[in-house]
Design a protein around this nucleic acid. Structure first.
Length: 940
RNA sequence: GGGCUUAUAGCUCAGUUGGUUAGAGCGCGCGCCUGAUAAGCGCGAGGUCGGAAGUUCGAGUCUUCCUAAGCCCA
């Protein structure tokens, strides 16, 4: 097609802002510039003295490839911090990492095991530290690449002395206030290595164990429930005969039905209680030759009965436990609180002793004198013989089952009760006060409140000690003479003076008296010589006191924090275990608001894991779509629910991104010859549609503000996306083209449109800045270069600019209402135009001439009123409003009273503006032009 | 097994205190434009709201049960 001689008189959009985003290449450059100018420090400086908003970062664990869920959580935090900053708050972000703990120690121990080394604790700790540092570095790099803004030069790490000092200061205070005590608890124990084992250090292998059924004779009277059956027993089943000496109770399930069975075996008749549904199976298992089922009772009715231990001089109670099932055994569970996790809980609930008569080599102690010194696996047969002798052994067989073994020596492990340190949850009404604080905290989503309330209500005392190396040592001492523990607020503070300054490695390096300096004595025997505790803290105690170690110990932060934002798994974890110390020591929850995100699942709703092959890492995302598109994806989802994610879904975000980018690009291009100082049109001289457009921008600002305040970022995303596509691209910007391209450059009409676009661009780039951190910056720099910033706006970075206020060009409600109707009318008109296009009568809508009317007087009045603008709103060449319609008119759908007729225009086409107008050909010098264009070209 | 949670078009989300033919954007299909062009515009086809029962004149929206999935426990 030959180029029109008038082409050069058209004012097309022009901008250096490229259509292609090329985020993978551009984002690192933008980040580099931010680092060079130290943008984070500049923001702090700009907000100094303002009201603070403190988001306290929950420290992630630095190991392995970064899960996309962690990347998402960090981006959510960043969006909050950036939004609050834009709203004028001083919102510092101090990120951290939870560096201690078993996963790292486990990895290091694995390496050492493969190398056949068993170095001392201090060396293990050094290797762990190195490992943690490596991954902290990796994570940090990726967080920065995700565009997360924060104090990356000085993050908090839980192995730093400054942090450890905070943990110990909180601990000292808790000791001082009486929350800490020492008691026993069963843990996995290897009697060959003589060490405690964590779940991760167990290997489940098949093992053959004895399978025994034992009758415990009831000593309570049961004549009312089971008349005439005496002696009556309760039958249990177990695979660990060696735990029978520590039996202190039998557990039943209250909801089950139990019955007394009288059976014959080896010519003897015995009556035993068991769950009704297990009778057949049990009778077969013990080889009973004949049996009769007696009366029944509910589990609840059995509770409180007492029985004689088969060979120990004591009686035990029948107690209730929810976990009792019918899948194995008799529905009556042998309970030894010192030898099992469930048993232990039951023991606590029932106030039983945590009996564990074993030494570290797995031999009975003097608490079971008749077999003192016998190792548990040697004892199994002896005990069976003993019970058979007493008539208690109903049957004995062997069973092959999966059983935990030590990962080091491959020996089967046992549960053994050991001395541990605990925090007493009911001391000083802590549970009650914590529950009250939960009520006073804002939980988003709201159900988080009931979730954590239930957890706090049910939880047992907190066991804070671990038999590991990689963590903060528990600074307790034991009297060398009488073994009594020494742990007071003062003793902890004495240790903290040294450890808090030089790090906790000193605990392993120095002698006890270098901490105690002879200032302490055993309050049992008065002894002055001590040995050090070997245990470390549960890592949850470390992260659970981060409000002290980080928020309180840093002058630029404030306690309590405004916001904690983590995954919903942290209701039990970090939220609860921060709440307890915080309420204990400060009387308040550590954060005013707690937001939780759901868990990431793959496209089919399954959990993500490397073994399933559906794992997506932060690296995967950053390498394919870049940070801004990933961030846009994060903003698009309702993170409060489960989050379905696959790479295809994230990649689809590129489409939404392009729409937003192109909208901004078009606005930039439209403003290529606009100087806000010289060309801005005052509100009262702006065209109605331009005022309407600005009003739409104002409405977008209000909605986004509300959504962001409510942490509903996905609603912000929807609003922005719709605004780009609906209000802007398909209507306003499309309608504006004729005016922007063909009107005289400095005409009021054109400057009015530019003023609106200028205001809209400003609002829009600021609204998207918390999400599209790089793209918004790119736009902003283009604006700065083009002289499009107001004089009070920071040219250095969009991130120094504030959240937009609605522009002072607000339109009257009548105007909004009018355009609402006009848009509905437009929809109907466009549908009619489409029919001409479909039958090839026309191509471009400008080829049409529209005649329109309505049977509704009000609508007709609106049409008449707006007649001169209708052609531009519909993007057709001419619109006539008729008084009435005949059969050639078609009714509307959105506005049913509408009557529309669309015809091909009879007029010639203007070479310049492409409108079909009667005046084309009238101008002598420019016969190809319409009157309007002729006037522009001749400058008239 | 328990506590908490989720389930609306292919995707991401809206659906106010239960009330007319369940909405939007994207994607998809068809077409237009070639003066936002690895862009832009228009039209259109897709859900009966995870399943079942119930309450009600009326339920996506309340109740119960079931199914699938997630977190935390056991």
């Amino acid at each position: 097609m030959a180029k029109s001689p008038y082409k050069d008189t058209i004012l097309l959009p022009k901008t250096s802002f490229s259509m292609k985003a090329d985020l993978l290449a551009r984002e690192p450059q933008i980040q580099k510039r931010w680092k060079q100018m130290d943008l984070y420090a500049k923001i702090r400086e700009a907000r100094a003295g303002r009201e603070q908003f403190i988001l306290h970062d929950g420290p992630p664990y630095p190991t392995g490839e970064m899960h996309v869920g962690l990347a998402m959580n960090k981006v959510l935090k960043d969006m909050v911090v950036r939004y609050k900053t834009r709203r004028g708050y001083d919102a510092p972000y101090l990120p951290g990492w939870d560096c201690h703990g078993l996963p790292i120690e486990f990895k290091v121990m694995q390496e050492l095991r493969e190398a056949g080394e068993t170095p001392p604790k201090i060396d293990i700790r050094k290797r762990c530290k190195k490992y943690a540092e490596t991954y902290v570095k990796k994570h940090k790099k990726q967080f920065i690449a995700l565009g997360v803004s924060g104090e990356w030069d000085a993050p908090y790490l839980t192995f730093l002395p400054s942090y450890e000092r905070g943990v110990l200061s909180a601990f000292a205070q808790m000791v001082g206030e009486g929350y800490v005590y020492r008691s026993t608890k069963p843990i996995h124990w290897c009697f060959d290595c003589e060490t405690a084992l964590a779940e991760a250090e167990l290997e489940y292998n098949t093992k053959t164990s004895p399978s025994i059924y034992v009758n415990f004779a009831l000593c309570s009277s049961v004549a009312d429930l089971f008349p005439g059956l005496k002696p009556l027993h309760v039958m249990i089943w177990t695979t660990t005969p060696w735990t029978i000496p520590a039996n202190l109770a039998i557990a039943v399930n209250e909801r089950f039905t139990y019955t007394a069975v009288t059976y014959e075996k080896d010519g003897q008749s015995t009556s035993s209680i068991m769950a009704a549904d297990t009778v057949e199976k049990v009778m077969a298992a013990i080889g009973a030759t004949n049996f009769t089922v007696g009366p029944t009772a509910t589990g609840k009715q059995l509770i409180g009965l007492r029985y004689d231990h088969p060979f120990m001089e004591r009686t035990g109670p029948v107690v209730s436990a929810e976990y009792v099932s019918l899948e194995e055994g008799t529905g009556c569970v042998h309970t030894a609180p010192g030898h099992g996790a469930d048993d232990y809980i039951t023991g606590l609930n029932e106030g039983l002793e945590i009996l564990s008569p074993l030494d570290s080599k797995g031999r009975y102690t003097d608490e079971f004198p008749s077999m003192q010194g016998v190792q548990v696996y040697d004892a199994n047969d002896k005990l069976c013989d003993l019970m058979a002798e007493k008539g208690a052994l109903a049957a004995k067989a062997a069973v092959s089952h999966s059983y935990p073994h030590c990962w080091r020596c491959n020996n089967p492990v046992i549960f053994r009760a050991t001395e541990q340190w605990f925090v007493r949850v009911d001391h000083k009404d802590l549970r009650q006060r914590a529950t009250e604080q939960i009520q006073d905290t804002r939980w988003i989503p709201g159900w988080g409140q009931s979730r954590i309330t239930g957890m706090v209500a049910d939880r047992p005392d907190w066991c804070i000690s671990r038999q590991r190396s990689w963590g903060v040592p528990i600074p307790a001492f034991y009297c060398a003479n009488c073994d009594r523990p020494l742990l007071t607020q003062k003793s902890v503070e004495a240790v903290n003076e040294i450890v808090g300054a030089r790090g906790t490695n000193t605990w392993f390096e120095l002698e006890p008296d270098e901490f105690l300096q002879g200032r302490f004595e055993c309050d049992g025997c008065g002894g002055k010589t001590f040995r050090k505790e070997e245990d470390i803290f549960d890592v949850w105690f470390e992260s659970g006191t981060s409000w002290r170690a980080v928020v309180q110990q840093n002058d630029h932060l404030r306690f309590p924090a405004d916001l904690y934002l983590e995954g919903t798994d942290q209701h039990r974890g970090w939220f609860q275990l921060s709440l307890l110390p915080s309420v204990a020591l400060e009387g308040v929850a550590p954060s005013k608001t707690v937001v939780t995100n759901g868990f990431i699942v793959d496209g089919s709703g399954q959990k993500m894991s490397k073994s399933k092959g559906n794992f997506i890492s932060a690296e995967d995302v950053l390498g394919v779509v870049g940070a801004d598109i990933f961030r846009l994806w994060v903003s698009s989802i309702d993170y409060k629910d489960h989050i379905f994610v696959d790479m295809a879904g994230i990649q689809e975000m590129a489409t939404s991104y392009r729409r937003i980018r192109n909208t901004m690009r078009y606005l930039l291009g439209s403003l290529h010859d606009f100087d806000p100082k010289a060309n801005a049109v005052p509100a009262d001289r702006m065209l109605p549609i331009d005022r309407w457009a600005v009003a739409q921008g104002n409405e977008l600002i209000r909605r986004v503000t509300q959504y962001n305040d409510d942490y509903d970022f996905h609603k912000t995303f929807q609003a922005i996306q719709n605004w780009c596509a609906v209000e802007m691209s398909s209507f306003y910007l499309d309608v504006l083209k004729d005016r922007m391209y063909t009107f005289a450059p400095d005409s009021n009409e054109r400057r009015s449109g530019q003023t609106a676009q200028w205001l809209l661009l400003h609002a829009f780039v600021k609204l998207t800045a918390p999400v599209l951190v790089h793209t918004a910056e790119e736009v902003w720099q283009t604006m700065a270069e083009a002289g499009l910033l107001a004089k009070d706006e920071p040219a250095e970075s969009v991130h120094l600019a504030a959240h937009p206020e609605p522009a002072d060009v607000d339109a009257a409600p009548e105007l909004l209402e009018k355009f609402g109707k006009l848009l509905a009318i437009r929809e109907d008109v466009l549908r009619e135009i489409e029919k001409l296009r479909a039958d090839k009568t026309i191509g471009n809508a400008l080829e049409t001439h529209v005649t329109i009317t309505s049977t509704d007087a009000e609508v007709l009045a609106l049409l008449t009123d707006e007649q001169k603008n209708l052609a531009s709103y519909f993007i057709v060449s001419d619109v006539q409003v008729a008084a009435s319609a005949d059969d050639s008119f078609v009714p509307g759908q959105a506005v049913p009273t509408l009557r529309i007729k669309v015809e091909k225009s009879a007029h010639p086409r203007c070479e310049r503006c492409w409108n079909f107008r009667p005046a084309v050909g009238d101008h002598a010098e420019h016969p190809q032009l319409c009157d309007r264009c002729a006037a522009v070209v001749t400058g008239g």
